[in-house]
């Protein structure tokens, strides 16, 4: 039996599950040479959950073949580069925190009172036991550089008027996907689905959005569900209980000191 498991391999097996941003904040405006409408759509989607700054309370439910896990978390974000998530429930994981600054991720572990940085070898590992990987958190920072997007369908599908945006990774972008397709409802511009394909055109995972509610004049989906295609019985669902935009948050809020202090 081969015992030579690099941590990465196992992390990868645990969360072989494919990458997507923790919050679907990854879909940012591609700046160049795209139709104005695409630009607008993506900017709109970006603003949906984040605004300039945001503070939210959310519940994450992870269903796997092996365990079911529900966590209540508080999350703060500032732009695309800063975010901080602190677990409130269950008691066992209370105060476990994740800080993301640009492409770096740290975890604060209250039990041992230590901050550990996620090394490159663990980037493909699961984040908090969910189907999101640590890398998904990081990738949102580089989305606009990595993809070229365009509207590829406009009209009725499945009884709904939709826009379909196809984001193709730039040839040299360090992205594993072959393409990403996002569907929006035409009138409210609320996102419906994000589909992630490999290079062969095989669907690898699906993210669905629903339970939209109007916040600050925008129809914002309050529930999102990530579904890996190779494990139909598994999923990760995030439900926003509360979300506030444009709360005052300085960059210094997202610091290692604060990570340890915010218990």
């Amino acid at each position: 039996m081969k015992r030579d498991w690099a941590a990465a391999d196992v992390a990868a097996t645990g969360g072989k599950l494919l990458k997507l941003a923790l919050l679907p904040l990854c879909l940012l405006a591609p700046v160049t040479a795209v139709a104005l409408e695409v630009d607008e759509l993506i900017r709109h989607m970006d603003k949906l959950w984040r605004g300039n700054t945001s503070a939210a309370v959310m519940t994450m439910t992870v269903n796997t073949r092996r365990y079911q896990r529900t966590m209540t978390m508080e999350a703060w974000s500032r732009g695309k580069d800063y975010s901080l998530v602190v677990v409130r429930k269950p008691i066992k994981d209370k105060d476990v925190a994740t800080l993301k600054v640009e492409e770096n991720i740290w975890n604060y572990l209250p039990k041992i009172n230590r901050v550990t940085k996620i090394p490159a070898s663990m980037m493909s590992g699961s984040w908090m036991g969910s189907h999101f990987t640590n890398d998904d958190l990081v990738k949102e920072s580089t989305f606009e550089d990595d993809y070229a997007s365009s509207i590829t369908f406009e009209g009725e599908r499945g009884g709904q008027a939709i826009y379909e945006i196809t984001a193709i990774p730039n040839p040299d972008a360090a992205v594993v996907w072959g393409k990403v397709i996002i569907n929006f409802e035409q009138t409210s511009l609320a996102p419906l689905q994000a589909l992630y394909f490999d290079e062969e055109g095989l669907l690898v995972r699906t993210m669905t959005f629903d339970q939209a509610r109007e916040i600050d004049g925008r129809l914002t989906p309050m529930r999102m569900r990530l579904q890996p295609e190779d494990k139909p019985e598994e999923s990760t669902t995030i439900i926003y209980e509360k979300i506030d935009f444009d709360v005052p948050l300085e960059a210094s809020f997202f610091s290692l000191q604060n990570l340890k202090r915010r218990r």
Binding site: A7, A8, A12, T13, S121, V176, F197, V204
Partner: peptide
Amino acid sequence: LQVLASTAHNAVG
């Protein structure tokens, strides 16, 4: 270099 190599399906050291 020591790297982590990943595709849409898996990742290995």
